[in-house]
Design a protein around this nucleic acid. Structure first.
Length: 867
RNA sequence: GGGCCCGUGGCGGAAUUGGUAUACGCAACGGACUUAAAAUCCGUCGCCGCAAGGCAUGUGGGUUCGACUCCCACCGGGCCCACCA
C-alpha cells in the first residue's frame, strides 16, 4: 500500500491486539440461547512441507467474513483451526531425510501457523487441535474401540453395544469358540481379507492414489496386488441412512449427487440358478445366486459370468468339475495381478468358459454356459451375474466377442434400445405370458413376485458402497489399540490405558512382508494380554488419514477435555456445524466417512440426541485459484504464487479483499497480479476518505469545515449497500459485495469534496468493510477515538424506507426496444405512467399514429408498448 | 457410458431471478499535475457507422409485450464418477 500507510506494522499491531484481547475467542460457556450460535468450519489443513498455497486462504477468508458478520450480529461464534497432520507425505519425507515424522510435523505446523496468522483470520487459536497429538488420538482410538465393541442391529437399523447381540441357540451350543467367532463377525470393526497395492521395490503398501496407472508413484515399478487381512469398518450398514438423511441437510446439489452416486443404491432381485456339472451328472445342492436390477429380462439370460475370485470357481477347480482347469487358473492368475486401475484402463472384454459346468435358467429351464470374466466385480452384488446380452451393453459386447446367443425379451424390449444387430427373438417371455404388455417397472415387480412364489429368488437392494478398509501398513498414523493374545484372541486395550502411543524411534524402515514398519519394533510390539496377562502382540497396523478428520469438528467444541472427547453440554450447544466449507475433492469420502462416524456415535448416545443425526447443517465448496492465464499452479510450471510474498508486498487486507473479489467463490479463478492493484487502490481510497476526519497527528477532532447537507443520493446508496453487502455475504457472493463497497466508496469520496460526510455514516462504512479488511478498519476505528475493537461492534442495520429513491428513471419500450427514458415519481399510478409514455415525443414516431395493441406497466421499471 | 455445471467486451466478471445487457475491477488510449517518473485526478473504451441508427450474451428454433435468464435441438468447454449387473 501507499508508503504513508505502514501496513506491515499496523497489521502486526492488530494481530497482537486481537490475540491479547481474545477478540475471536469463542465463549467457553455459551452466552446466548442455542438459536444464536454460529459454528463455521473449514477443512483443517494438512501441514505439508510446501507451506500454504494461495488456494487455502480462499476458504478461510470466506468463512472468516461470515463468522465476523455473525459475531457483529451478536451471535456466539465458533471458528476454529487445527491440523490434520498424520499421513503419507510426512512419513515419506521422514524416511527419506531420516528425521522423525513428529519433528517434521511440528516444523510444518509452525510454518503454517505463522502464515495463517499473518492473514488476520479470526480463528480461535485457543482451540487449536492436532490429530497427531496423543491427547487427541487417544479419543480417535477410543472411538475405534467403540466400533470394535458394537454391532449393527438390522431390525432397529442402528448400532448397539456388542453385549446386546443375541447369540443364536445353535451357535451357543457349539461352544465358546463359535460364540466368539459369531460375535467377531458382527462387530462394526472386523477383520477381513482385502487386496492391497504392493510395491515390491519400496516394500510398501500403496494407496490407490499412489498407484495410478499401475506403477508406484515413488519408484515407478509395477505395482502388484497382494491379499492381506485388514481391519474393516461396517459403513455399509449405514448406507440407507446416509442416503435418507441427505434430505435434511443443506448441501450443494452437486455434493448431494456425489454422495448419492457413491452410495449407489440399486433395487432389483437376487435370482438363484441351479448348477449342473458333467462330473456329477446332476444338479448340485448349492445354487449360484446373482443380483440383477432387471429381473424382468431373466428369460433373456443366455449365459452366466462369475468374477474370477468367486469362491465357487476355486471349489469347482478343486473337486475336478472344471475340465479346462489349467486355462481357468491362468486367467485367474492374470486377473489377480491386475490392479483395479489397470483393469479400468483396459476395457476390452476377456474371459474363459468353465467347461463341464452349466447353469439352469429358472425361467425356462434352459442350460446356459458359465464363464469367468474380470468385467464382473467380486465386490459388488454376489460377484456373479446373469448375462442378458440383448438388454445390457457389456453383456452384449461379451456375447459378440465369444459368439454367445442373444435373446431379446419382447415384453421388456420396450424402452431398451435395439442394438441394430440380429437377435433371436423368442416372442413371449413366459409360459404363462405374465409379462406381456407390462412396462419395465411393472414387469420387474411381477417378476420378483414370481421368483419369490416359486422359490427362485427375492427382491433386494444393493449398494456400491463398500466397507471401509481401515488398516494402513504405515508408521505415521494412529495405532489401532488392539492386542492379539494367543489364548484370548483380539483383545482391546483398556480405555484407561489409552492412548497407545507411537514408539519414539529415530528411524524405521519398511518391512519385507507388507507389515507396518511398527512390526519391526519388537519392544513396542511385545506386550501382555490385558485379559489374561499372558504374552501378546500389539496390532501393528495404523489408522487411515480419514480417522482423525472424521470427528475433529466435535473436539473443537471442547478441545482440552481429558475426561471425554467432548462435554455433552458443549456438544449440545455448538453442534451441528452451521456451515462447513471445503474443496470438492473431499465431498465424497471425507464427508461420507465423517457423517457415518458421527451417526455411529449418535446411535450409541455418545453424541447427545439433541445434536441431531447429521453433523453439518450446510456444506458449500470453494473452487481453485489458478495460475496466471488460467492454468493450474504447479512448481514445474513456475507459476506458483506464495501468499507470503503477496502479504509482504501488499499486506493482508489487500490480499483478503482481492481473494474475495477475484471471482465467484464457487468458480475457478486465475490469479492476476494487475487485479490486485485495483483492490489496493480501493483500500487506499477508503483511507483517504478518513484523511479529513482524522488529522495527521493522531488527534480525533473533526475539522470545522463549512457544512452542506449530506447528499440524499449517497444516503440512499449507503442503505442499499448495507442491504447488499449483508445479503451477499450470506449468499457467499463475496465478489459482488466488494463491488458494492467500491461503488459506495467511489460515491463517498466524490461527495466528500462538496459535503461533509456525517461521522456516523463513515463509521457505518467502516463496519461494512471490517470483515473484509480487519486490520485497516480497526486502525481507523481506534483513530476515530474508540477503545474497543470494531469487530465486536454491532453490524449496521439498513432502513428499507431509505433504500428507495422518490423518483426513478422509467424506460419506455416500443416492441421491445428502448425508445425513451423519463424521470418519474416512484409511486406514479399505472394509468399516469402509461399516459406519460404514450405522450413521449420520442415514442410518437414509432406509434405511427396507430392505436397500440397492448401497453404494459412494470412497477418501478418500465412501460412496454406493442403495436 | 452416467451425473453435475458452464459458454456475456481484450481479460476477471455484473445483471434486482423474465424487465434499460456489459455494474465493479483490470488492461488499453487521450488529457491534467510534474523538470521527469511514480502516485493521483479527469475523460474514452462491445461491434459497424460522420451521424441518425443498426447489430451483439456459443449456434439455430420456440414461448412472451419483453429472453443472458424459461423450453427444444445442436456446437464447444470443464469437473466428478465409471465394466456397479
Amino acid at each position: 500500500m501507499a508508503s504513508t500507510y505502514p501496513f506491515q506494522e499496523i497489521e502486526k499491531k492488530w494481530q497482537e491486539f486481537w490475540d491479547k484481547e481474545g477478540t475471536y475467542r469463542a465463549e467457553d460457556l455459551p452466552s446466548s440461547e442455542k438459536q444464536k450460535k454460529f459454528y463455521g468450519l473449514i477443512e483443517f489443513p494438512y501441514p505439508s512441507g510446501e507451506g500454504l498455497h494461495v488456494g487455502h486462504p480462499r476458504s478461510y477468508i470466506a468463512i472468516d467474513l461470515m463468522t465476523r458478520k455473525k459475531r457483529m450480529e451478536g451471535k456466539d461464534v465458533l471458528y476454529p483451526i487445527g491440523w490434520d497432520a498424520f499421513g503419507l507425505p510426512t512419513e515419506n519425507f521422514a524416511i527419506k531425510h531420516k528425521v522423525k515424522p513428529a519433528d517434521a510435523t511440528a516444523k510444518n505446523v509452525a510454518n503454517f501457523t505463522r502464515q495463517i496468522k499473518s492473514l488476520g483470520i479470526g480463528f480461535d487459536w485457543s482451540r487449536e487441535i492436532n490429530t497427531t497429538d496423543p491427547a487427541y488420538y487417544r479419543w480417535t482410538q477410543w472411538m475405534f474401540l467403540k466400533f470394535y465393541g458394537s454391532y449393527f442391529d438390522v431390525v432397529e437399523g442402528r448400532a448397539k453395544p456388542i453385549d446386546l447381540l443375541a447369540i443364536p441357540q445353535n451357535v451357543a451350543e457349539q461352544g465358546e469358540e463359535a460364540t466368539r467367532r459369531f460375535r467377531d463377525e458382527h462387530r462394526m470393526a472386523f477383520k477381513a481379507e482385502t487386496k492391497i497395492n504392493w510395491c515390491p521395490s519400496c516394500k510398501i503398501g500403496l494407496a490407490n492414489e499412489e498407484a495410478i496407472g499401475g506403477v508406484c508413484e515413488r519408484c515407478g515399478s509395477t505395482v502388484e496386488q497382494r491379499t492381506k487381512e485388514q481391519w474393516m469398518i461396517r459403513i455399509t450398514a449405514y448406507a440407507q441412512r446416509l442416503l435418507d438423511d441427505l434430505a435434511n441437510v443443506d448441501y450443494l446439489e452437486k455434493i448431494k449427487a456425489q454422495q448419492i452416486n457413491w452410495i449407489g443404491r440399486s433395487e432389483g432381485a437376487y435370482v438363484d440358478f441351479g448348477i449342473r456339472t458333467d462330473k456329477s451328472g446332476d444338479l448340485l445342492p448349492e445354487k449360484l445366486t446373482v443380483f440383477t436390477t432387471r429381473p424382468d429380462t431373466l428369460f433373456g439370460a443366455t449365459y452366466m459370468v462369475l468374477a474370477p475370485e468367486h469362491e465357487m470357481v476355486s471349489r469347482w477347480i478343486e473337486d475336478g468339475s472344471i475340465e479346462n482347469a489349467t486355462e481357468v487358473e491362468a486367467y485367474k492368475a492374470q486377473a489377480r495381478g491386475m490392479s483395479e486401475l489397470q483393469r479400468q484402463e483396459n476395457k476390452e472384454k476377456t474371459g474363459v468358459q468353465l467347461k463341464g459346468v452349466v447353469a439352469i435358467n429358472p425361467a425356462n429351464n434352459e442350460k446356459i454356459p458359465v464363464w469367468i470374466a474380470d468385467y464382473v466385480l467380486a465386490g459388488y452384488g454376489t460377484g456373479a451375474i446373469m448375462a442378458v446380452p440383448a438388454h445390457d451393453e457389456r453383456d452384449f459386447e461379451f456375447a459378440q466377442k465369444f459368439g454367445l446367443p442373444i435373446v431379446q425379451v419382447v415384453a421388456a424390449a420396450e424402452g431398451d434400445e435395439t442394438r441394430g444387430l440380429p437377435f433371436t427373438v423368442k416372442g413371449v417371455a413366459f409360459d404363462s405370458g405374465i409379462l406381456n404388455g407390462l412396462t419395465t417397472d411393472e414387469a420387474t415387480t411381477k417378476m420378483i413376485e414370481w421368483l419369490a412364489q416359486n422359490g427362485y429368488g427375492r427382491g433386494a437392494i444393493n449398494y456400491k458402497l463398500r466397507d471401509w478398509v481401515f488398516s494402513r501398513q504405515r508408521y505415521w498414523g494412529e495405532p489401532i489399540p488392539l492386542v492379539k493374545c494367543q489364548k484370548c484372541g483380539w483383545v482391546p486395550v483398556p480405555e484407561e490405558q489409552l492412548p497407545v502411543t507411537l514408539p519414539d524411534v529415530d528411524n524405521y524402515e519398511p518391512t519385507d512382508n507388507g507389515d507396518s514398519p511398527l512390526a519391526a519394533i519388537r519392544s513396542w510390539v511385545e506386550t501382555t494380554c490385558p485379559h489374561c496377562g499372558g504374552p501378546a502382540e500389539r496390532e501393528t497396523d495404523t489408522m487411515p488419514n480419514w480417522a482423525g478428520s472424521s470427528w475433529y469438528f466435535m473436539r473443537y467444541c471442547d478441545p482440552h477435555n481429558d475426561k471425554a472427547f467432548a462435554d455433552p453440554e458443549k456438544l449440545k450447544f455448538w453442534m451441528p456445524v452451521d456451515l462447513y466449507n471445503g474443496g470438492m475433492e473431499h465431498t465424497t469420502l471425507h464427508l461420507l466417512y465423517s457423517r457415518f462416524w458421527y451417526k455411529f456415535l449418535w446411535d450409541l448416545g455418545l453424541v447427545p440426541h439433541e445434536c441431531g443425526s447429521e453433523p453439518y447443517a450446510k456444506r458449500r465448496s470453494h473452487a481453485l485459484i489458478l495460475g496466471e492465464g488460467g492454468i493450474k499452479m504447479s512448481k514445474s510450471k513456475g507459476n506458483v504464487v506464495n501468499p507470503d510474498d503477496v502479504v509482504k508486498d501488499y499486506g493482508a487486507d489487500v490480499f483478503r479483499v482481492y481473494q474475495m473479489f477475484i471471482g465467484p467463490f464457487d468458480q475457478d479463478a486465475p490469479w492476476d497480479t494487475h487485479g490486485i492493484e485495483g483492490v489496493r487502490r480501493f483500500l487506499e481510497k477508503v483511507l483517504r476518505i478518513f484523511d479529513s476526519v482524522i488529522p495527521a497527528e493522531a488527534g480525533t477532532q473533526e475539522p470545522d469545515s463549512p457544512v452542506k447537507p449530506w447528499n440524499d443520493n449517497v444516503e440512499t446508496l449507503l442503505h442499499q449497500t448495507i442491504k447488499k453487502v449483508g445479503e451477499d455475504i450470506e449468499a457467499m457472493h463475496f465478489n459482488t459485495a466488494v463491488s458494492a463497497l467500491m461503488i459506495l466508496v467511489n460515491e463517498m469520496s466524490e461527495s466528500r469534496t462538496s459535503y461533509r460526510v456525517p461521522r456516523a455514516d463513515l463509521e457505518t462504512l467502516l463496519k461494512l468493510v471490517a470483515p473484509f479488511a480487519p486490520h485497516m478498519t480497526d486502525e481507523l476505528w481506534h483513530k476515530l477515538g474508540h477503545e474497543t475493537s470494531i469487530h465486536r461492534e454491532a453490524w449496521p442495520q439498513y432502513d428499507p424506507a431509505k433504500c428507495v429513491t422518490s423518483t426513478f428513471e422509467m424506460v419506455v419500450q416500443v416492441n421491445g426496444k428502448v425508445r425513451d427514458k423519463m424521470e418519474v415519481a416512484t409511486d406514479i399510478p399505472e394509468e399516469e405512467a402509461k399516459a406519460k409514455a404514450l405522450a413521449s415525443e420520442k415514442v410518437k414516431p414509432y406509434l405511427d399514429g396507430k392505436e397500440p395493441q397492448k401497453v404494459v406497466y412494470v412497477k418501478g421499471r418500465l412501460v412496454s408498448i406493442s403495436i
